[in-house]
């Protein structure tokens, strides 16, 4: 097999366009997913029964179904009930809804892992659940959350390639477009892998930097 450097040189800048879209999707879905995930995580820590059950059910559903189906559900099923999004936003929302479930589990786990004595000390000075969470447990949970949340964000970025199936012109879709006109699948997929690898590595590096910056006691 001859490696076609020409098509690589041709495709590299074209794919950069896809990289921009992939970045936009990942950042937007990441932010939405983190926000929603924190809200769900706090809800499941609130001790309010109906909230706990709703979150439980939601997390179960997301974990028990393929992401591809979730993407199709958002893209095809929601318009049926009158909600219409562009491909781009449908993709962002699907990825965010998916990530939120995993983020909520990270939040719940990190807060739950804090030593029981902290909760007891807070209770002993008359704290109720909300200030206990906000002022005692969460501040101690940030740092241990970072590695697990990074994993979720890495997964989300990789998962964004699935949005090619609803024609979002992100990195994978952009690559496929080049393949269909130039028929150099090996070169292009290798190039795609390289682009993703650089993105993910940058994300992981940023996360390690953040983890070092967060205070430890």
């Amino acid at each position: 097999m001859i490696f076609d450097w020409g098509v690589v040189a041709y495709a590299a800048p074209l794919l950069a366009e896809g990289v921009v879209i992939t970045l936009q999707i990942s950042v937007l879905a990441g932010i939405l997913g983190l926000l929603l995930g924190f809200a769900l995580g706090l809800a499941s820590l609130s001790g309010i029964r109906p909230l706990v059950w709703i979150v439980r059910g939601y997390v179960d559903f997301i974990r028990g179904t393929p992401l591809l189906i979730q993407i199709f559900l958002v893209f095809f099923a929601l318009p049926v009930v009158g909600v219409r999004f562009s491909e781009f936003w449908a993709g962002v929302i699907a990825l965010a809804l998916n990530a939120a479930a995993y983020v909520s589990e990270v939040v719940r786990g990190a807060v739950g892992a804090i030593e029981k004595g902290q909760t007891e000390a807070a209770l002993s000075i008359g704290m109720t659940r909300a200030p206990l969470l906000i002022h005692v447990l969460l501040p101690q949970a940030w740092r241990p959350m970072v590695p697990a949340l990074t994993n979720d964000m890495v997964t989300l970025t990789k998962n964004s390639s699935l949005l090619s199936v609803i024609s979002v012109y992100e990195l994978t879709r952009a690559g496929q477009a080049v393949i269909s006109t130039h028929f150099a699948p090996f070169e292009i997929y290798l190039l795609l892998a390289l682009y993703y690898y650089v993105l993910i590595t940058a994300l992981a590096t940023a996360s390690r930097w953040l983890e070092r910056r967060l205070p430890a006691w």
Partner: peptide, 12 residues
């Protein structure tokens, strides 16, 4: 007021 064997201070 409760004083614990292991202090249980808030480390942050």
């Amino acid at each position: 007021g409760f004083v614990f064997q292991r202090f249980n201070l808030f480390p942050h």
